[in-house]
Nucleic acid binder design. Structure first.
Lengths: 202, 202
DNA sequence: ACGGCTATTGGACCAAAGGACAGTTTCGGG
DNA sequence: CCCGAAACTGTCCTTTGGTCCAATAGCCGT
């Protein structure tokens, strides 16, 4: 058993060239890259066999270029094939939780190449004591009727539906909705929904 | 208690402006970004208080540029402040395991800007994406581009904004949005947001 | 009684959203 | 090489959403 599998006692090894029909949703697939074939090619072959299961690539000689191409091809993790068992377990945890495992160096590389105009953190700390008003406070600014309308809007109802539901005119609904927008400082009903639903109303 | 904390019963909330002396090594710090101050500034203030503990930023309106700058400033995760509790737990798991949490869209962006000559092999991602939303099955019906648009719509962007952001015509955005509506069986963008963000329709 | 807040409605106007047609192009698989 | 899926763009049109100008009526506290 290869070293990089020792960390995972329950892991199964598929015979070379075999096609696996159904993989449990939780399956993690490790791709041990060889040093001869193009990495993307190896991945493509693997994909044919395993479908869309998350793949973690293990390279003998980690390289940013290689990592880059693999990530863009859908790989969820990339690390040194000779990493310690504990590290590999960590990678597995991250990927299994739906995350990406990216080496620190590669991350820096990615960020660096994307910066066009990003100032180097001027950190001019102006006290931000007062300006932070989580929308919890703002919701209490609403009148009873406005709150009622706001919730219904956030639930996905159209103005017309709300009007019918509340027994008032669509015009009036618009008035309430408009008032809510102002008080909560949102520009449209979708943003209202994000705020209201993120606030966990009862 | 804010929604994004409900997922973590043992979480502690520090009083505004307080300086925390010692944080356990396992501590995770959530930074809820407001809509007014520069994200980097908010992070800087937080850093003064908590030192080097891993920080996950929560944004009301996720934006690639913002995410980029935060990651380069050392943030370990970045996601929608209105994400479902389950998603947040997942983010926490990934970061606590030492990983980075990067949205699919941002990942694509990073890769795209770094590509020099990488056109072989199709990008066949789309399966495991940013969230384990309850409607993950339906979301998997979407094409890559549709998913990208759907997420942005659900984040509160207008068609015009999305068009500018993706470098395509507003007309094309409408086409994608329309296709998403059909596939997810929703009637408008607000319902789409509810589905994507993991709420239930009323 | 008066001012202020709430709820209601009207009309007009413009921007955004969404549907209904119809197209071109690119690219991978059979 | 052809087919189909995906991405993309166009025009025309209707419906909805959102903001501006108003106005009327009830309620509450000083």
């Amino acid at each position: 058993m290869p070293r990089w599998l020792e960390a995972f006692p329950t892991a199964k090894i598929a015979p070379a060239g075999s096609t696996i029909q159904r993989l449990p949703a939780s399956a993690l697939v490790w791709l041990r890259l060889d040093d001869v074939h193009p990495a993307l090619e190896q991945l493509a072959v693997l994909r044919k066999a395993i479908g869309t299961s998350p793949v973690i690539a293990l390279s003998n000689h980690p390289d940013n270029e290689e990592a880059l191409s693999l990530f863009s091809a859908g790989v969820r993790g990339y690390c040194n094939a000779h990493a310690a068992a504990a590290n590999l377990r960590q990678v597995a945890n991250v990927v299994q939780a739906g995350g990406l495992w990216i080496g620190e160096a590669l991350m820096q590389r990615l960020l660096a190449s994307t910066q066009t105009a990003m100032s180097r953190i001027p950190v001019s700390v102006s006290a931000m004591d007062e300006g932070v008003s989580p929308s919890a406070e703002r919701l209490s600014l609403l009148t009873k009727r406005e709150l009622e309308v706001a919730r219904t809007v956030a639930g996905g109802s159209s103005n017309k539906e709300i009007a019918r539901q509340l027994g008032i005119t669509e015009r009036t609904v618009k008035a309430h909705v408009g008032a809510v927008f102002q008080k909560l400082k949102v520009r449209d009903r979708l943003h209202l929904a994000l705020v209201v639903n993120g606030q966990r109303l009862t």
